[in-house]
Simulated scan of single mutants.
Amino acid sequence: MSIYVSHLVSNKDILSIKERYAVGIEIVNFASALSLDNKDEELDVLFKGIGNHLTGKVSVHGPYSDMSPGSPDRKIRRVTMDRFQECYELASGVLKAERIVFHSGFIPKLSYDLEWLKYSKEFWEEFLQDKQEDGIKIHIENVFEEDYKLLCELVDYINKPNFSICLDIGHKNACSTLSLEQWVKAMGKRIGYVHLHNNDGKGDLHNPLEEGTINMPEALKLLKEYSHEAAWCLEVFSKGGIESSLDYLIDCGYL
């Protein structure tokens, strides 16, 4: 089982975690598109801070603010394409990442289902046409989705081994009234990556695994049974929360 931790804490804290646990790192420095305009400075800060630990398992969270791969406006899709490509080149090049995560950009009550699906299909077909299928894995993440159907249909349509779903169980808990069991069983092997955190079912709190309304033993069991090839990443906002969550995974036999 590949386990990552998201670099949502200080360099000092992430280094301390890496010394204690056999985990990879999900880099979030470029989750803001603005950071791509200063990528040399961002890379310098990153490598000075944790460069010696950027070996082995590395994933990257792509830019998400204002990004809309399923937009009906071709100019917005083009900006999104350019930003995603910039981040992909960093991830696959200098960072030697195994994976990169992009948000779906779907917004209920604003996005029209079939329109979003049509343009998302066109976007990802174009984006993936020059990406080697045995190279970096690309995961599309649920954020505000109320159900799983559009993401499943998109992944099935693209039908490439390097393109799969990043299931964020915290986002699901805050935004969907459907059970996690329904989501995991329906998505199944389409899930290639999982963001693990907990919340109160209302806000995207990024709590440790045991702090919230998600039945975590049941969630992990479902993921292991129906999406057993997926890698997991802890997206928790505090060092103590990351450590307690890693200890929880160890106690449950997942790490």
Rank of each mutant, 00 (worst) to 15 (best):
S2Q: 15
S6N: 06
S6V: 02
H7P: 02
L8N: 12
L8V: 09
K12E: 03
S16D: 04
S16L: 11
I17C: 02
K18L: 13
E19L: 06
Y21S: 00
Y21M: 02
A22M: 09
G24K: 01
I25C: 00
E26C: 07
N29E: 12
A31L: 10
S32A: 07
A33Y: 08
D40Y: 04
E42Y: 12
L46K: 00
L46Y: 03
F47E: 00
F47Q: 00
F47D: 00
K48V: 00
H53Y: 10
L54F: 00
Y64S: 12
M67Q: 14
D73K: 05
I76R: 15
R77I: 04
R78W: 10
V79H: 02
D82E: 15
F84G: 06
Q85L: 08
C87F: 05
E89A: 14
L90D: 02
L90V: 03
G93L: 03
G93S: 06
G93Q: 02
L95P: 02
K96I: 13
R99A: 11
I100D: 06
I100V: 05
F102R: 03
G105P: 11
P108V: 00
L110I: 03
L110E: 03
S111F: 06
Y112N: 14
D113E: 09
L114K: 15
K118M: 11
Y119L: 12
K121I: 13
E122A: 15
F123H: 12
F123I: 03
E125N: 14
E125V: 07
Q129N: 11
K131N: 13
E133I: 13
I136M: 15
K137L: 09
I138K: 09
E141K: 05
N142D: 01
N142M: 00
F144I: 05
Y148Q: 14
K149G: 04
L151M: 15
C152M: 11
V155R: 04
D156E: 03
N159M: 10
P161S: 07
P161W: 08
N162E: 10
G170R: 03
G170Y: 01
C175G: 02
T177R: 14
L178N: 12
L178Y: 04
S179Q: 02
S179F: 02
L180R: 02
V184I: 14
K185L: 04
K185T: 08
M187H: 04
M187I: 06
G188L: 07
K189E: 12
I191S: 05
Y193A: 06
V194F: 02
L196M: 07
H197R: 10
D200E: 06
G201Y: 08
G203I: 15
L205I: 07
N207Y: 09
L209S: 01
N215I: 09
M216I: 14
M216C: 11
P217E: 01
K221L: 13
E225K: 11
E225C: 10
Y226W: 15
S227K: 14
E235D: 09
F237S: 07
K239A: 12
G240D: 10
G240F: 01
G241I: 14
I242D: 01
E243Q: 09
L246M: 10
L246D: 11
Y248F: 13
L249V: 01
D251L: 09
D251E: 13
Y254C: 12
Y254F: 14
